[in-house]
C-alpha cells in the first residue's frame, strides 16, 4: 500500500506527463482541434491513471491538465479550451463507466477506443454549439473511424505505462 506521499508524488508525475503530451499535441497541430485528426496522447495518462488509481484521481489529473495546459498555451477561455475540456470529460466519463462493467469485461483497447470516440463526438457537439453551425454530421463517421487506430495506439501506450508503474511497486 503506497503512502500518501508516494501517492502524491505519482500523481504529480502523471500530471506532468499528461501536460507534456497535451503540449506536444497543442504545438504539433493547429489550435482549432476540429478538423485535424489527433492521436489523443493525453488520453494515455487519463486511461493509465483510471486503471491504476481510480476515477477520482484520473478526473483530478484531466481537469488540472486541461487547465494548466490552457495557461501554458494561452488559450484559457477560448474555443480550443472548451473543446479540450469537453473532450477530456466525455472520454473520462465513458471510460470510467466501461471500466466498472465487469461483464462484458473490456480491456485497455476497448476502453481507449470508446474513450477516443466519445472525445471526438463531444468536441464536435461542443463546436457546433459554440459556433452555432451544424454542418458536421458528415464528420461523425470520419471521426469515429479515426478513433479506432488512434485508440489502439493510446491503449498500447497506456498499457505499457501501467505495467511500468506496476513494476515499481503497485502493491
Amino acid at each position: 500500500m503506497p503512502s500518501p506521499t508516494e501517492k502524491l508524488t505519482k500523481m504529480a508525475f502523471f500530471l506532468a506527463l499528461a501536460l507534456v503530451f497535451h503540449l506536444i499535441e497543442a504545438i504539433l497541430i493547429p489550435p482549432l482541434p476540429l478538423v485535424g485528426v489527433r492521436l489523443g496522447l493525453a488520453n494515455v495518462v487519463t486511461l493509465a491513471a483510471l486503471e491504476l488509481y481510480g476515477v477520482s484521481s484520473s478526473l483530478a489529473i484531466s481537469i488540472l491538465r486541461v487547465l494548466l495546459g490552457s495557461f501554458l498555451t494561452a488559450t484559457f477561455g477560448t474555443t480550443a479550451f472548451w473543446l479540450s475540456l469537453a473532450g477530456a470529460m466525455a472520454s473520462l466519463m465513458v471510460m470510467g463507466l466501461l471500466a466498472r462493467v465487469q461483464k462484458p469485461k473490456f480491456g485497455f483497447l476497448g476502453l481507449s477506443i470508446a474513450g477516443a470516440m466519445s472525445h471526438n463526438w463531444a468536441q464536435l457537439l461542443t463546436y457546433s454549439l459554440l459556433a452555432s453551425f451544424s454542418g458536421f454530421s458528415y464528420y461523425l463517421v470520419l471521426l469515429a473511424g479515426a478513433a479506432i487506430p488512434t485508440g489502439m495506439v493510446v491503449a498500447y501506450l497506456a498499457y505499457q505505462l501501467c505495467r511500468l508503474e506496476g513494476r515499481r511497486g503497485r502493491c
Binding site: A99, P104, K105, F106, G107, F108, G110, I113, C162, R170
Partner: peptide, 13 residues
Amino acid sequence: NCAPLRDFYTKED
C-alpha cells in the same frame, strides 16, 4: 491498487 491490471485486450474488445 492491488487488483491485477486489466488485460490489454479482451474478446469483448
